[in-house]
Design a protein around this nucleic acid. Structure first.
Lengths: 132, 132
DNA sequence: CCTTGACCCTCCAGTCAGTGGAAGGTCTAG
DNA sequence: CTAGACCTTCCACTGACTGGAGGGTCAAGG
């Protein structure tokens, strides 16, 4: 059993974040006599699970679902896989969107001389004064 | 001069968003006798400028900067270009991060059978039980 | 003249996933 | 016994809106 700062070190999650996760019912540590949170090894596993899934881009609600699958020894691996695949699709979409954005912005930047003169195709485009 | 819903149509910005932009001092429309906001053509240009720059991924604060450059007839085009280039770099970084995420998640998903059995390499990874 | 419905207004609360800080209690080493 | 490093709760803030309550205004139709 350990205090929150030790759990923080072992899970690589900030103390504030751990308390926040308790607030939204992702974890329920025990309390000692003076009201301090007290974490056991399985709590730390849970926190690490959260740290890892958040860092992979899952939202809190997805983490909640993944945790329930983690808790369920009889879940089908297909249940987990479908969550992962949905997330991969989302990431893919986001990458494509950003790619489009980059192309557009790069084209604008390339047309801009970047000198001391006031003429600027970027501003013209933003203002709706582009010719194309 | 037009009411807010007409300005919304012409700028492709939701009414709520236009009011919000006023709240944070991006635009200051006139008011008519009964307190209704009243937009002229130059207000609509400003709103369109905001719509376009937001859709290109600039934050509100960046839009505020771009607007001040838009207002300044003597700005150097290099000032604008540097804002655009910084944004391109950010987008690039984000794309790379998402690419890494996608590779990691895809590798996990590929190792998962996705069947009715409980064994799941994705959960194992999240739980820190991966072998590699 | 009155009503209906489409506008408009302000203000408050909520979103997401935390982060920062204030005010105060507890524990441990010197 | 005291300093300082912990711990607690609670409230406010972030970005960029969005939703809704509760009310005022305006134009058309009966």
């Amino acid at each position: 059993m350990m205090n929150i700062s030790e759990a923080s070190k072992r899970s690589h999650l900030p103390v504030k974040t751990i308390r926040y996760y308790e607030d939204i019912d992702l974890i329920k540590p025990a309390r000692n006599g003076s009201g301090y949170r007290s974490y056991n090894e399985s709590d730390v596993h849970r926190l690490r699970f959260l740290q890892r899934s958040r860092s992979l881009g899952f939202t809190i609600e997805e983490c909640r679902l993944l945790l329930s699958l983690y808790d369920d020894d009889n879940r089908a691996s297909s249940d987990v896989k479908s969550v992962a695949e949905a997330k991969i699709k989302e990431i893919d979409l986001k990458i494509k969107e950003l790619g489009t954005l980059k192309v557009t912005l790069s084209a604008l930047a390339q047309n801009c001389h970047g000198d001391d003169k006031p003429d600027c195709p970027i501003i013209d485009d933003l203002a709706g004064r582009r010719d194309h």
